[in-house]
């Protein structure tokens, strides 16, 4: 059984290396983005095989989903063919070889792959594995470490996502749709219309399932936010941006993004008010375990709201630019 997993892992890593090599020598940018989509899918599959279930979930939805769609929209505006670069590729090759040699030199003393007595599993990890189900009360240890032990990291990360939407909005800005704009979207694909209309409610339901199932199985705020945003992106792709703006306006999304971050930080402030440290969920309720549950559910909700609002707003900003360059 174990060597079977090693075999599968080796095969997938080999496929991954081939994809990366192929991307280096490809000049057609559309093919590069398509192969990058495969690269993200494959790496998410490898994460799954390395027992990193939540990470595979996030990499598939965020890495393969949002990044590929954004790159395609950008390519629609910037053209498909990469020109031959004039300066020689000797210097980059040299720099890469030096860094690679340094890394290989670094791997010589590394603890072997997969041994249970590696130092990584000695010092800090045992407490997460043994005590977190008791202290925090969640079966999914990754969510309990993410939200409770290292909650400050996740707050920082939600703020990173928030600053991404600030950057994209300041650069592109979402163009308000004037009614006279032509009804863009895939009008000609009747089949896609019907299928999309039936699928989108299912996807949103699945996103909510992922949001609240994050404590017991793979899932959580980030993944749920991205899947919900993916549902709306599908709606905008198939039925066109004007209709999507009517459903969820960009202005409302900016408020939602800010509200998500504030919801997360207010949990921290409330626990400070109740006498504990910042983001200390034990203070939230009489019984510490219940407090942990409340805290984690609320901050996962805050994260989900922020990530949903940010990802959708970024797509709106990119989509409205594409429409503008296409219209004039």
């Amino acid at each position: 059984m174990a060597e079977f997993i090693d075999l599968v892992l080796l095969a997938m890593l080999a496929m991954l290396a081939l994809t990366a090599l192929r991307i280096i020598f490809l000049k057609d940018l559309f093919a590069v983005v398509m192969l990058f989509g495969i690269y993200s899918f494959l790496s998410a599959l490898i994460f799954l095989n390395l027992d990193a279930v939540d990470v595979a979930f996030t990499e598939a939805s965020v890495g393969a989903g949002i990044s590929t769609v954004l790159m395609l929209v950008t390519l629609a505006m910037t053209g498909r063919k990469e020109k031959q670069s004039t300066h020689s590729s000797l210097l980059p090759l040299f720099v890469v070889l030096v860094t690679g040699a340094a890394l290989i030199y670094g791997t010589l003393d590394m603890p072997p792959f997969g041994h249970p007595d590696n130092p990584v599993h000695q010092h800090v990890a045992p407490r997460y594995i043994e005590e977190s189900p008791k202290e925090v009360g969640l079966p999914n240890m990754v969510t309990s470490v993410l939200a409770s032990y290292r909650g400050f990291d996740t707050l920082g990360e939600t703020v990173v996502v928030f600053s991404a939407v600030i950057g994209v909005l300041s650069l592109l800005g979402v163009r308000r749709k004037k009614k006279k704009d032509l009804e863009s979207g895939l009008e000609t694909h009747r089949v896609l219309h019907v299928v999309a209309k039936n699928i989108i409610p299912l996807v949103i339901l699945f996103a909510l399932y992922v949001q609240f199932h994050g404590d017991f199985g793979p899932g959580g705020g980030f993944q749920a936010g991205v899947i919900a945003a993916a549902a709306f992106i599908l709606y905008a792709l198939v039925l066109g941006l004007p209709k999507a703006f009517a459903v969820v306006g960009p202005r409302f999304l900016q408020w939602m993004a800010a509200a998500g971050v504030l919801l997360y930080a207010s949990v921290g402030l409330y626990s400070m008010y109740k006498g504990g440290q910042f983001l200390d969920y034990n203070q939230l309720a009489a019984d510490p375990i219940a407090g942990q549950h409340y805290g984690i559910i609320i901050i996962e909700l805050g994260v989900g709201i922020t990530v949903f609002a940010v990802m959708l707003n970024i797509f709106y900003a990119f989509g409205s630019q594409a429409e503008r360059s296409n219209v004039q």
Partner: peptide
């Protein structure tokens, strides 16, 4: 069980990576 801590770190790093990609692509469009 496998070690949950690297998974938490990488959950954070993936979203940071996408945020940088989004800002980078917006710059490319401009």
């Amino acid at each position: 069980y496998s070690n949950p801590l690297p998974h938490v770190l990488i959950l954070t790093a993936i979203v940071v990576g996408v945020a940088t990609t989004a800002v980078g692509l917006a710059l490319v469009v401009r």
